[in-house]
Design a protein around this nucleic acid. Structure first.
Length: 294
DNA sequence: AAGACTCTCAACCGCTAAACG
DNA sequence: ACGTTTAGCGGTTGAGAGTCT
């Protein structure tokens, strides 16, 4: 019979509203389970897996479909990603109405933006002729509270002996002195060919309310300012990514890193570009330039 | 106006764990 | 205890819309 062949045929691709209706009916009757029976009963030519996914990601009630991540949600994702890694389902469970797929997509597009930002800096440093050709709109939606910084050292007695992950930037209280270096200044001083204009021009505050309420302290770091000449990989160095590792989103945390001594090393610092807030430079006073110092 | 480029999102795939017989 | 099925998860891909040049 041709029935068997038909039964074997599996439909893929976008869901039609009729299919959604069938799926919804099934869930209404039996609950969100027995997904494979939907196909075996001939209700749909979708695999159980596909049905489940459709339900979880699109048809489940109380989903925030089509809504951009709010500032709070973004912050939560970043925080939890730092904490749990790429456990999207776990992270999503902290975000009502969001699915693991949502979180995953949010994160990967964020990573792509950041990766591209670096690439742009690289290409702009080797060729100034690109003008606006590759100019990207940088709209990194990261809450201001996540000021990326490079630990120099924390306050007395607290040395960052394991600097590979600086955790979420956290300016928790006034007692805790966290020495930070504004990224842009770091980039300017350490990567002379980095075209910071792109960053400066394109970073625009996405949430002015943050700006008005949060002022980020900028403690000076003498040891760094005294020694800005140590060798650093340059963005225009063709071996740069040999040092940093491949420019792949999962590896993206690989960045130059300063140790408390002021020496430089390469280390894994998860929150460096990851947590690049777009208004970070607005809130940080410029460092005293070496020439003005003293 | 058209092509190139980028971003977002839905859906698929492969793998693993849990449940079941 | 073991094999099979089902559910769940994370990674990846591709379509379509939007933006830029």
């Amino acid at each position: 019979m041709h029935g068997k062949k038909e039964q074997e045929h599996v439909r893929k691709g976008p869901w039609k509203t009729e299919e959604d209706d069938v799926l919804l009916n099934h869930v209404k009757k039996y609950g969100p389970r027995d997904w494979s029976s939907i196909r075996s009963k001939g209700l749909l030519q979708r695999t159980g897996k596909s049905c489940r996914l459709r339900w979880v990601n699109k048809l489940r009630p109380n989903l925030k479909n089509g809504c951009k991540f709010t500032t709070d949600e973004e912050r939560t994702v970043i925080e939890l990603q730092e904490q749990f890694g790429n456990k999207w389902a776990k992270i999503a469970s902290h975000l009502p109405g969001r699915t693991d797929n949502d979180v995953k997509n949010f994160w990967s597009s964020r990573q792509k933006r950041l990766a591209r930002l670096l690439k742009i800096s690289s290409s702009s440093s080797t060729s100034k002729s690109h003008k606006n050709k590759n100019k990207a709109k940088v709209s990194l939606s990261v809450p201001t509270s996540e000021i990326p910084y490079k630990f120099s050292s924390s306050s007395e007695g607290e040395t960052s002996s394991k600097p590979q992950s600086c955790s979420l930037p956290c300016i928790q209280n006034s007692d805790q002195v966290i020495k930070m270096v504004p990224l842009l200044d770091l980039i300017k001083s350490e990567l002379p060919n980095f075209d910071t204009n792109y960053v400066e021009q394109e970073f625009t505050p996405f949430d002015q309310s943050y700006k008005s309420t949060e002022q980020i302290a900028f403690p000076q770091i003498p040891e760094l300012q005294n020694d800005l000449t140590f060798p650093m990989p340059r963005v225009d160095d063709q071996n740069l990514f040999d040092v940093f590792g491949p420019l792949d989103s999962s590896e993206f945390g690989m960045v130059p890193f300063f140790e408390p001594s002021g020496s430089c090393r390469i280390g894994k610092m998860d929150c460096f570009f990851d947590d690049f807030p777009e208004d970070m430079f607005d809130n940080i006073d410029p460092p005293i330039s070496p020439s003005n110092k003293l």
